[in-house]
């Protein structure tokens, strides 16, 4: 990794938003490939942030600070990525399921996915199964990511999966689930393709689902 990419990488891990945007601009001015800035500098940094979180070294607000720095850099980089026809890691429709108003965890997952170059369509909280179906249909998403924080609302994940089946979309989209009361076993029972216990592992699981 060259010096400028290393500077971008470090600024994101440290959550230094202004440094990130300055260094991304500097890298572009130097003629660095947008894809290299994205993948070697930014996505690699967010992967490291996720790893630090999984290890218990980083805390939730630090992940957000890093994701904010990443997003600032990404906003600057986006026109160049479009011009260079650099593809996203995949398209994710995300939301907290019907009846559940919690959104902090889902928001964190969305930010981490964006930090890993996924295109995220955030449907918000209390999302009706039909709204998930409509969004998948309209966006041709690769993944539906659902969150639930309550035992009383997590059955709506299965309802949503059934709605995707009924709409003939289930084979076209992977389903990723997460949230405090969920387990891998529950994810298996409802027919989800992936389960993640936290935002960092949601990214890793999303990547593996895309690769599968």
């Amino acid at each position: 990794m060259n010096e400028i990419l290393r500077a971008i990488y470090s600024s994101i891990i440290d959550g230094e938003q202004k440094v990130t945007t300055a260094k991304v601009q500097e890298a572009l001015d130097q003629g660095t490939e947008p894809s290299a800035i994205l993948n070697e500098g930014m996505v690699a940094a967010m992967a490291e942030v996720g790893k630090l979180f999984e290890e218990g070294e980083y805390f939730v607000p630090e992940m957000l600070v890093a994701a904010r720095a990443m997003q600032s850099g990404l906003a600057m980089l986006k026109p160049y990525l479009v011009k260079a026809d650099v593809k996203s890691s995949g398209k994710v429709v995300a939301g907290t399921v019907k009846g559940d108003l919690h959104d902090i965890g889902k928001n964190l997952v969305c930010m981490m996915l964006e930090g890993s170059a996924f295109e995220v369509i955030d449907l918000g909280s209390d999302v009706d199964p039909d709204k998930f179906v409509e969004a998948v249909h309209q966006t041709n998403a690769d993944i539906v990511a659902m969150s639930a924080l309550l035992t009383t609302t997590m059955p709506n994940m299965k309802v949503t999966i059934e709605a995707l089946k009924a709409a003939g979309l289930r084979d076209k989209v992977k389903v990723l689930v997460g949230g405090a009361p969920l387990t891998q076993q529950y994810a298996n029972e409802i027919g989800a393709d992936g389960y993640a216990p936290d935002a960092s592992r949601a990214v890793a699981t999303a990547k593996s689902l895309i690769a599968a």
Partner: peptide, 18 residues
């Protein structure tokens, strides 16, 4: 800071902005 899931003793020095 604890309400955000962070350890105040660690994060205060590491990320003063928080």
């Amino acid at each position: 800071l604890r309400g955000q899931g962070a350890n105040p003793a660690i994060i205060t020095n590491r990320k003063p902005v928080l």
